[in-house]
Amino acid sequence: MRALVTGSAGFVGHALSRRLLSRGCRVTGFDGFSDYYDVELKRMRHRDLARFDGFTEVEAQLQTPGALIDAFAAAKPDLVFHLAAQAGVRYSLINPGSYVDANLVGTANLLEAVRAHPVRHLMVASTSSAYGGNTQMPFRETDRSVTPLTLYAASKIATEAMAHSYAHLFSVPTTAFRFFTVYGPWGRPDMALFLFTQKILAGEPIEVFGEGAAERDFTYIDDLVDAILRLSECPPPLPSQGAPVGEADSLSDVAPYRLVNIGGGRPVRLDAMIAALEMSLGRKAHRILKPLPPGDVVRTHASTELLETLIGHVPETPLETGIAAFVAWYREHYRDA
């Protein structure tokens, strides 16, 4: 099996690539090593992947003309996992152009590469932020997503729409999956768990947005990767060859395309997450309570009905277990006593 993973030096891309390689797959990792956060951490992830004989690194930007076409021609992938994107809700208020370049232009280039080199299944990463101003819980894949609160969310909705159009026009089996607050070892330094750990160990106060009452549907990285791989074995059928698997199915009427949530369906308050982190670190946090910033939502809650129907289970790692694993990795990586 040959796979091409965009964003392979990212948090999710690294974990997914590592799992694929451990199964004996050949993986082409495509990453531009943007400086949105610590580039050295990204380099370390790729060095970790380079320990496997089946890994090939391609360092290039999604938006560079011809880069993806060349990578596809060399890799001849059976599966494509499109994880590369400009991430971050709040950063989109500061540097909106980077979201247009990476998430819109970059995805368009990827879809053209898939058009030129058809694959068995295209897997496209999206986000729970796409639900935007929706207030009905849990978030269901069949809910309308027309109220994005940030350019980041809007760019990911556009990514889904572009992927659907190519699935329709060129019969590309495509699954778009929406992440719900992923965390775990090798995590992103811009996310709350990493930031809180760093500051608590340094004896610095942490800023708690939403005054600790905001809730997130935390998803452990190993659970996420497992779900992605199981979904990759369930390509959506052509409209003439298959039917929805139930009322919760988002299968398109006009394309081999499906949208799937990947979350545990168990929202946790931010202050409860901090308490679990304090327990793992053996230290108390000094909290500065702040209101939610623009673009943030009070609660995320994934409907897991479709995911369970398709792959048989949902993410289940307890938050305390996942946080303990992250803390162990962090202490090792940063040599914290």
Rank of each mutant, 00 (worst) to 15 (best):
A116E: 12
Q198R: 15
T28P: 12
A167C: 08
L111S: 00
T150A: 11
A213W: 07
E160V: 03
G322V: 01
R287G: 01
G54T: 10
R331A: 12
S171D: 12
T309S: 15
F179R: 12
E207T: 09
A192Q: 14
D48V: 00
D223F: 00
F218R: 01
Y131E: 05
R23V: 05
T127N: 04
V146I: 06
D271F: 03
V327W: 11
R144C: 10
T142N: 14
N261I: 02
L231P: 00
F326N: 08
L169R: 11
V146K: 07
I323S: 09
W186K: 08
Y334Q: 07
R144P: 00
G133R: 12
R115T: 10
A153R: 06
P315G: 02
W329L: 05
Y131S: 06
P65G: 03
V12M: 14
H333N: 13
N261P: 06
G263A: 06
G24N: 09
G187C: 10
L21G: 01
L16K: 10
V39Q: 08
R43W: 12
Y37R: 02
A9L: 08
G322H: 02
R178D: 06
L151A: 01
L79N: 01
D296T: 07
V268K: 00
Y152R: 01
R266L: 08
A67D: 04
V327M: 11
V182M: 14
L193K: 06
C234Q: 14
A15D: 09
L310Y: 12
A73I: 04
Y36H: 10
P267D: 03
M279W: 07
S129F: 12
M279D: 08
F55E: 01
I228H: 01
P173R: 08
P173I: 10
S250W: 01
A158E: 05
E308K: 15
E215T: 11
I200V: 15
A337V: 13
Y220P: 00
F55K: 02
A213N: 11
V260P: 04
A85L: 09
M137K: 11
V146E: 15
P65L: 10
L259V: 12
G322M: 05
L4C: 04
H46P: 00
A60E: 04
D336R: 15
P65S: 03
A73H: 06
T147E: 15
P235Y: 03
L201P: 09
G187L: 03
T300G: 10
D31I: 09
A71P: 01
I323T: 05
V119D: 03
T300V: 09
H313V: 06
T175E: 13
L201N: 05
G13S: 11
M44S: 13
R43C: 10
G132M: 09
P244Y: 11
